[in-house]
Design a binder for these strands. Structure first.
Length: 459
RNA sequence: GCCCCGUUCGUCUAGCCAGGCCUAGGACACAAGGUUUUCAUCCUUGCGACAGGGGUUCGAAUCCCCUACGGGGUGCCA
């Protein structure tokens, strides 16, 4: 395939939806895969609904996901401008072309596209009125995912609204022609409209591009019926950014919604996605969003991050919650994060998981308290281990280990008898990072201090 | 209503176009067990699907038809 030109043509009317992001991703992947161009075109013809904030969010979102464009806002190319609101002249001249050909006419102040064929009127129950219809030749939509789809348009449609704005169907086609778009990859919700577009391409004597209609992303049935909407949980990509999900994981996840690499490989970073992506492998049926799988993928990426980068990202969520200062001890932070990295699946949960490393004001789990401290002998265990730990000269994992082993041996029981109690005393919970390294990292002073406090509280 | 598209484990999917290798594979989730008995990690095992009915065929998840169900469209929204 030479000279592939794919485009992503969103209209900035609200927050960026996960389905919108996937459409962008698939276009981008296809362009990168084929060595073609990825064009970002802003369809802002609906003046009432478009906002600057929505545009910024869209652009930020694409950048965050790592999707760059070859032509578009901020990156002018030979077919600009890339805002439809700035292409009025082109549309006007094309309205005129259709009028000159006798394929457009005015009615009620709007301009309609005129279909070819025998006209008749019929009662239409959906519109609850007599409407004029046209017996047109069937239109064949060449769809890379669904094969050939045949449809008929039977009513003239508006190409310019009475307020002077050209309509979506019209600008879409005019720009696809003008920008020499070869492949139109978009949601299945456009499939039924595509016959309108093909009629328009034909009227302009242009070859229609190849189409690929992506399956819809459906709502969780618990949330209702239909396609996922912006109000649904997990629907907005800004949500993932705000929750500190890794963009690589989000991209990977949405790529797997409707597409599969055909083997058991699932953790696919952007460059693997490019090399393996293929439009033929896109699923036809709708997909449902699964937050658990999203988290799983996020965890995979979190585990494989280099520690230095993990720490960098962790700092953001830790300082947002006030747990660390910019001046905090870097090496302490690093060893604490090393223990967290293998345990938790999102940076969102990090503050809750790791708070005790950074503050004495961490949360005490009542459940853990009941389970661990309310047992007979717990306080005694804590009291007898304190002097042993206090006696350790060089505070490292193996010394701590032998302190526990020693007392265990003397009493003829296993060292694990002490673990949960000490863990609770120093962290307020019965779960967390691996025990010994955690104790080492916390440091002798903190550990002893907290055991002392616990003793005072529970004695 | 009409038109178009779809339907494999709870979920994402492999297999379908080129029918036998499918007693339908993987992942997430879930459950049980294990990991020198923290644990949200890790490992093992388990659970679990071809929407239904007809046909074609020696043979169908794969091809055809019907039904059911789901989705989309039917706007001077995109």
């Amino acid at each position: 395939m030479d000279n592939v030109r794919a485009r992503f043509a969103p209209s900035p009317t609200g927050s960026t939806h996960i389905g919108t992001a996937r459409t962008a991703l698939f276009n981008w992947l296809f362009a990168r895969k084929t060595g073609g161009a990825f064009v970002l075109r802003i369809e802002d013809t609906d003046k009432e609904r478009n906002t600057q904030e929505a545009l910024e969010e869209l652009v930020d979102g694409l950048k965050w996901l790592g999707l760059d464009w070859d032509e578009g806002p901020g990156k002018e190319g030979p077919f600009g401008p890339y805002f439809q609101s700035q292409r009025g002249e082109l549309y006007q001249s094309h309205i005129q072309i259709l009028k000159d050909k006798g394929r457009a006419y005015e009615k009620d102040g709007a301009v309609y596209f005129k279909l070819l064929g025998e006209r008749y009127t019929e009662f239409d129950s959906y519109h609850d009125a007599e409407v004029e219809k046209v017996k047109t030749e069937p239109v064949i939509i060449d769809d890379l995912i669904r094969g050939q789809v045949t449809r008929k348009e039977e009513r003239d449609f508006v190409i310019q609204r009475s307020n002077g704005d050209p309509s979506f169907h019209f600008v879409n086609v005019v720009d696809d022609i003008a920008m020499k778009i070869t492949h139109v990859i978009r949601g299945e919700d456009h499939l039924s409209n595509t016959s309108k577009h093909v009629e328009l391409f034909k009227a302009f004597e242009a070859t229609p591009p190849k189409f690929a209609h992506l399956p819809m992303i459906l709502k969780d049935p618990k949330e209702g019926k239909g396609k996922m909407s912006k109000r649904d949980k997990g629907a907005l990509i800004s949500e993932y950014r705000d929750r500190n999900f890794l963009p690589e994981a989000v991209v990977n996840f949405i790529a797997l919604l409707g597409w599969s690499p055909k083997d058991d490989q699932e953790t696919l970073p952007l460059d693997s996605l490019i090399s393996r992506f293929n439009l033929d492998d896109v699923q036809k049926g709708g997909a449902r969003f699964d937050e658990k799988k999203m988290s799983h993928l996020n965890f995979e990426y979190m585990k494989s991050m280099p520690l230095s980068q993990y720490v960098k990202t962790a700092k953001v969520s830790l300082s947002n919650t006030g747990l660390i200062e910019p001046s905090s001890d870097e090496s302490y932070l690093e060893s604490a994060m090393k223990l967290c990295q293998e345990k938790i699946d999102s940076f969102e949960n990090l503050p809750g998981f790791a708070a005790f490393f950074f503050t004495d004001d961490y949360e005490i789990s009542e459940k853990a308290e009941k389970k661990v401290m309310k047992k007979d002998g717990a306080v005694e265990r804590l009291a007898e281990i304190a002097p042993r730990l206090s006696g350790i000269q060089s505070w490292d994992e193996s010394s701590i280990d032998s302190a526990f082993n020693q007392i265990a041996e003397e009493q003829g029981i296993k060292p694990f008898a002490w673990y949960p109690i000490v863990r609770f005393a120093v962290s307020g919970t019965n779960s967390g990072p691996d025990f010994l390294p955690m104790i080492e990292t916390l440091g002798k002073e903190r550990v002893l201090k907290r055991i002392e406090n616990a003793l005072a509280k529970y004695s």
